[in-house]
Design a protein around this nucleic acid. Sequence first.
DNA 1: CGCGTGAGAATGAACGTTCACTCATTAACT
DNA 2: AGTTAATGAGTGAACGTTCATTCTCACGCG
Lengths: 191, 191
Amino acid sequence: MKTSDKRRDIMQAALELIAEQGFHRAPMAEIAEKAGVAAGTIYRYFESKDVLITKLHRELEDKIMAVLQEGYPSGRPLRERFLYLIRELLRYFITNPLHFRYMEQYFNSPYGISMHRDRLLGKSGNQDILMDIFDQGIEQQVLKEFPKAVLFSLAFGPMIFLMRDHIFDFIVLDEALIKQITEACWDAIKR
Amino acid sequence: MKTSDKRRDIMQAALELIAEQGFHRAPMAEIAEKAGVAAGTIYRYFESKDVLITKLHRELEDKIMAVLQEGYPSGRPLRERFLYLIRELLRYFITNPLHFRYMEQYFNSPYGISMHRDRLLGKSGNQDILMDIFDQGIEQQVLKEFPKAVLFSLAFGPMIFLMRDHIFDFIVLDEALIKQITEACWDAIKR
DNA sequence: CGCGTGAGAATGAACGTTCACTCATTAACT
DNA sequence: AGTTAATGAGTGAACGTTCATTCTCACGCG
């Protein structure tokens, strides 16, 4: 609770500002002010804005992955595991809208491209629960015979769009709707 | 072929630069250079960068809508009309990747939010072929009973993701795959 | 116990760069 | 000759980053 205190404050301030305003409207000076430190102080903890952005992303990703792993029904059928993943991710983002906004920014930036490439090529460090489902689903002929990128898009594309709509109040994602939506996603990929 | 000449050049240069680099890495000076005019000249045709960006978007949207209307099978069943729309849009973007990249940039920016809001509320100027399909589909009980925003996400979310993957060479969208994908989208929304 | 000291932490003014936009000047056209 | 179009150096604002300076505080010494 010494150095990590300021480090935390800076990361939290950066998260909020970037999630709400985007990378370009989140100047270091403002991040510093929000974190209650001087501008120069940030550079004691992060060598550049880029590094701060990347570290923040990695931290969020780890946290989300941990949440998804937690109650993951490993032994259960594919369909159930798939529905679980989509549902829990939606719930997580609804509870943590800033996290969603941040990840979205990151994804829609040059950073996001290489991240996505690694994921599709299976090069992400931790083993990837979702890609595993796709592999098994194709093998067991439960899923349509699509490249993984296509399955990924059919499953995640709608989710991202819907979270956006939810955050901007174009729609209210309640439990009933979430259930129906996850099943609609399943309809799209199941054989 | 007088004023419109330079106007065209400027819009084309802006389209290319913004599509490839994003709004922030497309300085007016560079747009001017690419268009073969001086920086100040742009302001004879567009009162600000914002206006240029908005005009460019409107033009692309009009063009895309015109293409979609062209062979639109008005009299045919809902399913056929839906598949047509998704397929033709995919084809259009594959043929005009810069247009896709630009629209994507625009959508993932503050501009995009209000645009999307208007669309969901049916406030876009021209009547909206896709939203019509959703209205009719719900009425005729062919589609799942979702809010239009949800149907929209299920239909378009995957498409946007896939175009991204296609443009970055993570996937090759050939005719066979496009057919299967559009049908998978239909599976997601059909009752 | 009080005090001086030194090293690490923090500061914020200043710097260099980038960018959208302006405008006095020049060129082109009628 | 006069009107419109085009130019591009210049302006000021915004930003990421630096660094000389100040602050903090644990520790050793008298």
